[in-house]
């Protein structure tokens, strides 16, 4: 069974968090807090030294997690341990290809089989995915696709063929010096994606507040949102006081669950 196959039709909430942030032990508490709210999806970021597709906040989280030489195996063990209280929440790993390559694809899959429902390999383009996708699908793990505002129709069609799980639409791109969400553009692109694929479309990057979540739901055709940086930012906002962080995390997740 793959939890991603029974996602609801609307208002899907996916929460991203870096494994091992701020420390491995504290990370368990963070994920347990997240799990207690039963979001539809939790995305586990595997820390990488050079996360070039992530913004400065997630980069900082990666750095903190790697301070204590957190290994890939430790991250995977953490995910396994958390999966005991997984229930209906889908588990998705988000990582860079070098992490999987160095760990060994088969060993990686062996570690996450029946635990993880999907994987996003940020820097694995469609052109290079064949072998990995095959191995993953044999083990009932979906390879989640990213679509950006730069992806044109012709390319989207190729990318979205046989897509499984959900589509991750990267919203905040191409807007010079601004992080404002352009709902008109998002709606236009999400609509076009939905014509080509039947799996849910989630909007990510730049979603920071309850208002953003509601606006996405009201002003666009998207089926849900991914929130990442905003969850991590809270830790720096309260000057890295961990107990306060857990409380503010709780409050924030309650808010964005609409």
């Amino acid at each position: 069974m793959n939890n991603l196959d029974s996602l609801p039709k609307k208002k899907i909430l996916s929460l991203f968090m870096t494994c091992g942030f701020p420390t491995l032990n504290q990370s368990k508490k963070v994920f347990n807090e997240m799990l207690s709210h039963q979001p539809n999806i939790i995305e586990f970021g595997l820390p990488f030294s050079d996360p070039m597709a992530d913004g400065p906040i997630i980069q900082e989280a990666n750095k903190l997690a790697l301070r204590s030489k957190l290994s890939t195996q430790q991250s995977l063990n953490l995910i396994k341990e958390l999966s005991k209280s997984k229930n209906n929440t889908s588990f998705v790993i988000m990582c860079y290809l070098n992490t999987v390559r160095k760990f060994g694809l088969n060993k990686f899959i062996k570690n996450i089989k029946s635990i993880v429902d999907g994987i996003i390999i940020v820097d694995l383009p469609f052109e290079e995915e064949d072998a990995i996708k095959k191995s993953l699908s044999k083990n009932n793990i979906h390879l989640i696709k990213l679509i950006s505002p730069m992806t044109d129709k012709k390319r989207s069609k190729k990318l979205l063929k046989n897509s499984k799980g959900f589509i991750y639409y990267i919203s905040a791109t191409g807007i010079t010096g601004s992080n404002k969400l352009d709902y008109k553009e998002i709606n236009k692109n999400v609509k076009s994606i939905k014509k080509m694929s039947s799996v849910p479309v989630l909007v990510g990057f730049g979603i920071k507040s309850k208002k953003d979540v509601i606006d996405i739901s009201k002003k666009t055709n998207a089926d849900g949102v991914v929130i990442g940086s905003a969850l991590i930012q809270k830790y720096f906002d309260i000057k890295m006081d961990f107990n306060k962080y857990l409380k503010s995390l709780k409050k924030f997740i309650q808010e964005v669950k609409i």
Binding site: D123, P125, E128, I147, S148, M150, I170
Partner: peptide, 20 residues
């Protein structure tokens, strides 16, 4: 044509950069 020097090279970037 896809930028491979033997097995090396390639284009390992996110979909935000791929079309570019």
């Amino acid at each position: 044509t896809v930028g491979r020097f033997g097995e090396f090279g390639g284009m390992y970037v996110s979909e935000t950069l791929m079309p570019l």
